[in-house]
Design a protein around this nucleic acid. Structure first.
Lengths: 216, 216
DNA sequence: AATATATTGTTATTTTATTAACAACTCTGT
DNA sequence: ACAGAGTTGTTAATAAAATAACAATATATT
């Protein structure tokens, strides 16, 4: 049996994913420059910082629609605003988080995410020791209450930080109630309908890269 | 100024990074199969699970040296062992962790990493409220004690989970004392000599992808 | 025993991403 | 005014990754 890839690529699919993944890094660097009152930056300077080719930086930035000035570079303030708008970091995307263990707690407490457009509005867990507690003004509910809350708030994104074995059942639950995207922090691969967006974040891939580089 | 990429690619560079990043996912899936007493698996079955092309799975697995059997597939137990050995998940790589905040604590407490070859042997922080505490049998030291401990243990890997502004100074410190690789969880890009391995893990890239998919 | 078929594993092709080349431009210094 | 150099932004070439094609083979079925 030869299985063909199921990439639903009827959509426009404009920006390359590698570019999308690099932009937040540029943004962070630019914010440091702004703090240091740097007014203009060239793609070459950015490239040096990230040890990459300056052409690639120029190309990445061109996707955002920013215009640079020959011999001068890009206006730092303007570039920051442009990237933030391009990445939708200026809108607030509400999210529910499932599994308030160590990682879940860390994400809830991490203020950084809020200024990057992610607004966790409620946590869910089954463990009585965290249920009904409040972390950073965010209440942790029993999982049963998810249906009611999902009706009250129009939430499109669910973050899964449960133990591995629970990931699929939570995915099934949230999909059944209209969630559009899942950010899966467990190493478990989850099965969802094709129209649901899944982003897997697992430290094991990064660890594999590090160990490989160290041992080769 | 045209900046050229500084990829130190004089090394052999055998396995493609995308392959390396996919292998831990396969491994996790295989462990589930083993739990369910499945003896053989084909690349097609793995491909369906991850919604990818089966040829790619075959190719990925071939890098590990595993041999499959026509019409049968791969022996699950053997494949697990082969991938674990290939990724060096069976060796224990000792690591120091800097910055015992929410994320740092989560990583220290996360037992999963230990069975994937990562052994955090000490934490470091400047905050008196965590210094000299013990988490999961792992002691948190003041940063001053790093030099002594780095002499005592031969540690090659440093994990940075400090506030952004501290990332560079910690990087400088650990590089000065012989660390070979840095796993940087801050969004801050750090400058290190070319021979030092840096792996950046930032949730912002993943967030950018999710928001882009949701809003397009 | 012969046939059909699922599967591996390799090679070829296509697609995607990166790097190189270069024209156009604009600022600085003479 | 003019030369020179740094820079953008686009197009061309190269490199890398993913997909397709297919030969070889082992198993199950008739």
């Amino acid at each position: 049996m030869r299985v063909k890839s199921g990439n639903g690529k009827n959509a426009v699919n404009q920006i390359p994913e590698p570019t999308l993944r690099r932009l937040p890094g540029y943004l962070n660097f630019l914010k440091v420059l702004r703090t240091n009152h740097v007014e203009f930056v060239s793609s070459g300077q950015i490239a040096i910082n990230f040890k990459m080719d300056s052409t690639l930086v120029t190309k990445d930035l061109s996707y955002t629609g920013i215009k640079g000035r020959t011999k001068i570079g890009y206006n730092v303030d303007q570039l920051i605003d442009t990237i933030i708008a391009f990445l939708d970091f200026n809108k607030q995307e509400n999210a529910f988080l499932f599994g308030v263990g160590n990682l879940g707690k860390a994400l809830i407490k991490y203020q950084g995410l809020r200024s990057y457009g992610l607004n966790i509005i409620a946590g869910f867990d089954t463990n009585p020791s965290v249920v009904n507690t409040v972390l950073n003004d965010i209440k942790i509910h029993p999982v049963d209450e998810f249906r009611d809350l999902s009706r009250k708030f129009n939430v499109r994104l669910a973050i899964i930080t449960t133990p591995d074995a629970r990931a699929q059942e939570i995915a099934d639950l949230v999909v059944a109630w209209g969630i559009k995207a899942i950010w899966n922090f467990t190493p478990q691969s989850i099965k969802v309908p094709d129209n649901i967006i899944v982003e897997n974040t697992s430290v094991y891939s990064d660890l594999a890269v590090i160990l490989n580089r160290l041992n080769q």
